[in-house]
């Protein structure tokens, strides 16, 4: 290696402090998370501040352009676009968190088990991963949603989670595989710790930054898949989502009528959330991976 300027092994606390030190100075990370945070707060607080009016209620004259009264204008039915927008943001974050969370959980279980145990279990799980990986996710979700009439945010998130974990499981497996043969894991094994404990105490903490970044990418992916499903017409029937807004806008000729305020905000918000997450992820990578820290 390079003259690995011999120092004592860094304390975990020191490592965390150092990571934080670089995190707050990383422009990509700060910008990315700031954008996500602003949109998240809009989604969380917006509906409260706007009162209890349901987002799909007809509240004003149709097709009004943006004004002080209706920030994002109104739809062809006279619904307030901004009200729909803040409720839609909420749905988007919920689906992202749920789908991304479930996918991350499955990916971790499969990845840890396959990578740590190896052997037949690894073979079987890798095969399963590859099979699910090849199947086009959206097509499966179409069939499932259409037949079972899934129209709730929670169930939608669940099924997205169930189908979008494979690439993450592969990544976790590869990481686990490389950690498995490290000294400290051997030591833990020799000292008689069980498999579950070794994974929980020795392996997972050593790749926590990696797992977090995986979750971020899964979150972004879930948001995009959910918006596609909603757009095809398999979105929630109760309430509103950003994808559903896009669907309504195109279905009711917002394009031809020039109601740009109807279809620009929801798409821009999805792009902003997912893009900001991706950029923040690059920032995180730079923070946790000292090799990339060439400022």
């Amino acid at each position: 290696m390079t003259a690995a300027l011999t120092e004592t092994r860094p304390e975990p606390r020191a490592v965390r402090r150092e990571a934080l030190h670089f995190a707050v100075r990383n422009g990509k990370l700060v910008t990315g998370f700031a954008v996500v945070l602003v949109l998240l707060l809009t989604g969380l607080l917006g509906p409260l501040l706007l009162g209890s009016a349901p987002p799909n209620e007809y509240v004003a004259a149709p097709m009004l352009p943006p004004s002080a009264e209706h920030w994002f204008g109104t739809t062809t039915f006279g619904q307030d676009v901004f009200t729909q927008f803040v409720h839609g943001l909420r749905t988007t974050f919920a689906v992202g968190a749920l789908g991304g969370g479930i996918a991350a959980l499955i990916a971790m279980v499969v990845g840890f088990a396959a990578g740590y145990r190896g052997g037949l279990l690894d073979e079987a799980l890798t095969m399963l991963t590859n099979v699910i990986l090849v199947i086009p996710t959206l097509a499966v979700l179409l069939i499932v949603n259409a037949y079972l009439g899934i129209r709730g945010v929670a169930v939608q998130g669940l099924f997205i989670g169930l189908t979008s974990w494979p690439w993450a499981a592969r990544a976790v497996r590869a990481q686990t595989f490389s950690l498995r043969t490290r000294d400290f894991v051997d030591l833990a094994r020799l000292s008689g710790l069980g498999t579950g404990r070794i994974i929980a105490r020795e392996i997972a903490p050593n790749m926590s930054s990696y797992l977090f970044m995986t979750f971020i990418l899964l979150f972004g992916g879930s948001v995009l898949i959910a918006s596609s499903l909603d757009f095809i017409g398999l979105g929630p029937t109760e309430g509103v989502s950003l994808g559903l807004m896009l669907q309504n806008a195109t279905q009711w000729s917002a394009l031809q009528l020039g109601l740009w305020w109807w279809f620009v905000p929801p798409g821009a918000a999805i792009t902003a959330v997912v893009g900001a997450l991706y950029v923040a992820n690059v920032g995180l990578d730079e923070v946790f991976n000292p090799k990339l820290r060439t400022t």
Partner: peptide, 17 residues
Amino acid sequence: ESGCGKTTLGKSLIRLD
């Protein structure tokens, strides 16, 4: 020992990273 500067010296003679 590692970290004594021998590798740095070697690199200095041909290509600094």
